[in-house]
Design a protein around this nucleic acid. Structure first.
Length: 480
RNA sequence: GCUCUGAUGGAGAAGCGGCUUAACUCAUUGCCCUCUCAAGGCAACAUUCAUGGGUUCGAAUCCCAUUCAGAGUACCA
């Protein structure tokens, strides 16, 4: 590759960074880094109504949190390519659109929304379901235009598609793809409010920013010929395109922001205690398979392993379970210091431990390190221990009323009372001595205590539970 | 409808003409460990690659048709 690789992620600021966006950004980033190129973060905010203030920076920062750090962005502009926000360069687009009009490649369209609507209905009535603009305004005389203007109509600008031209391109993911221009109607490139549409603005931006490769969602595949036509009219070299598969939900539909069964936004995962490295790792393997059997990748390893040709072209389903597993692997791998920093905020949400000192909280947190799948899960674990709510079953009641159970409980109470310092080792010793004195062992030994304390038959090790609850609380629960 | 794109186990998928009795990972199930759950270890889990035809000594892999699914079809991006 002779020219420098430049790729971009260009979201519209309509909300938080979501899974699909993050994945798209990730693969662009990997591509850039793989070929020593630049990754550009730019904003496509031409739909004024849907723009949400602050969404641009929020998305940028979520990306950076994930470790996907742009070389250029709205925060770090390169003067050569700035501005990085489309609404800040409206004049530029209008200038280029004007050029197209002058060359006869585009024309003013005075049709109103209502007329367009009518046109659509008429075509539908004739059995044509895909609307194609009928070029009503293609050959307007100056007098007709004057007349329209007098009526108060403000024109939009439409691109005149060439007749019967094949737009072929080699897709980085899918191979050769082609479209016929006859299937595409003349589309609006500048709206009547003077703002360019997406399909026009991307082309101008990608060209001016010297973007060499465009990796984007499959939903853009059919936009490509429109953009190719614009490149052709300007005589510009088009970038290479690669259309990645979309992510689907368990119903097989495209993951949409309105899908409430699945968490959509990076911020939600962060709040739940998912690690950025784990999310990146998971996203990397969604619709992409490396050529070895590796499952865990650092960003650097992912850069090395990435190859757009290995990107899947069939839709990928988002599997929350695998994300959890991946995250759990990363939690296990953390060193203790980082782990504490990560998990203690969650532990502090359980009010029972509000008086615990730092050391005690750390020890507490450590108990769950090996089994934790995401940060907020520790709150669930802890609550199960701290606030036993489940009612005993009849079977459990019988078990607890048995001679053995009572004997174990009483002995345990005595020995615990006699204890000066409570810690897991000491508790372990108590169990051991009860076992030696009574000959009771296994389930019969531990379960009376476990059930009485937590009301459930499973959970972390008994010694830890007792340590977590503290002597006073344990005695309290055992006596009742 | 039209255009485009796909189709390998519950999920992500490898494979791209013989090495495939279809890799690997998640999930699930069983066993081990163990007071229990989880974690960890060990196993099991597609006689078959959407269907039907063809090409070939040989097909998940190539060709054709059918079916199904998704995306797009906006003065949204």
């Amino acid at each position: 590759m002779s020219e420098k690789v430049r790729v971009r992620y260009a979201p519209s600021p309509t909300g938080y960074l979501h899974i699909g966006g993050a994945r798209s950004a990730l693969f662009n980033y990997l591509f850039a880094k793989k070929y020593n190129g630049d990754f550009v973060f730019r904003i496509e905010d031409t739909d004024l109504e849907r723009n949400i203030p602050g969404a641009d920076f929020s998305q940028l920062h979520d990306l950076i949190w994930l470790g996907i750090v742009p070389d250029e962005s709205i925060e770090k502009p390169n003067p050569k390519y700035a501005p990085y926000r489309q609404t800040e360069k409206l004049d530029l687009y209008r200038k280029y659109a004007q050029e197209l009009v002058e060359k006869g490649y585009a024309y003013e369209c005075y049709c109103t929304k209502e007329e367009l609507e009518q046109m659509k209905e008429d075509q539908l009535a004739n059995g044509i379901k895909s609307f194609k603009y009928d070029r009503h305004c293609l050959h307007l005389t100056p007098e007709q235009k004057e007349q329209y203007k007098k009526e108060g109509r403000v024109p939009s600008i439409r691109l005149k598609m060439e007749d019967n031209v094949e737009f072929k391109f080699h897709d980085l993911v899918r191979g050769d793809v082609s479209f016929n221009s006859d299937d595409i109607g003349d589309f609006v490139i500048v709206k009547s409010n003077g703002i360019p549409t997406y399909n026009f603005a991307v082309v101008i931006d990608d060209h001016l920013m010297e973007i060499t490769h465009v990796l984007r969602g499959e939903e853009h595949l059919s936009n490509t010929p429109k953009q190719l036509q614009i490149y052709k009219y300007f005589g510009w070299k088009a970038p290479e395109f690669g259309h990645m598969t979309i992510i689907i939900n368990p119903n097989g539909k495209k993951l949409s922001k309105r899908d409430h069964n699945i968490l959509q936004f990076m911020s939600e995962y962060r709040d739940l205690g998912y690690l950025p490295e784990a999310i990146v790792n998971f996203l990397f393997l969604l619709g992409f398979t490396p050529d070895d059997n590796k499952e865990l990748f650092t960003m650097d390893e992912a850069i090395k392993a990435f190859d757009p040709k290995r990107l899947s072209s069939s839709p990928s389903m988002f599997d929350q379970k695998k994300l959890e597993w991946t995250n759990g692997q990363y939690i296990k791998k953390m060193d203790n210091e980082s782990y504490f920093k990560f998990v203690i905020p969650f532990v502090k949400k359980v009010s029972y431990f509000k008086n615990y000192d730092e050391k005690a909280l750390d020890n507490l947190a450590l108990v769950f390190k090996e089994e934790l799948l995401y940060g907020a899960q520790i709150v669930e674990f802890l609550n199960d221990i701290v606030t036993p709510t489940k009612e005993f079953t009849d079977e459990q009641k019988v078990f607890l009323d048995s001679e053995n159970s009572k004997k174990v409980k009483n002995l345990f109470i005595d020995k615990l009372n006699a204890l000066d310092i409570l810690n897991a080792d000491n508790v372990k010793a108590i169990f051991k001595s009860i076992q030696q004195e009574t000959g009771i062992r296994g389930k019969d030994l531990y379960m009376p205590i476990r059930l009485t304390l937590t009301h459930v038959e499973h959970g972390v090790e008994m010694f830890n539970i007792i340590d977590i609850l503290g002597k006073k609380e344990v005695l309290n629960r055992l006596k009742n």
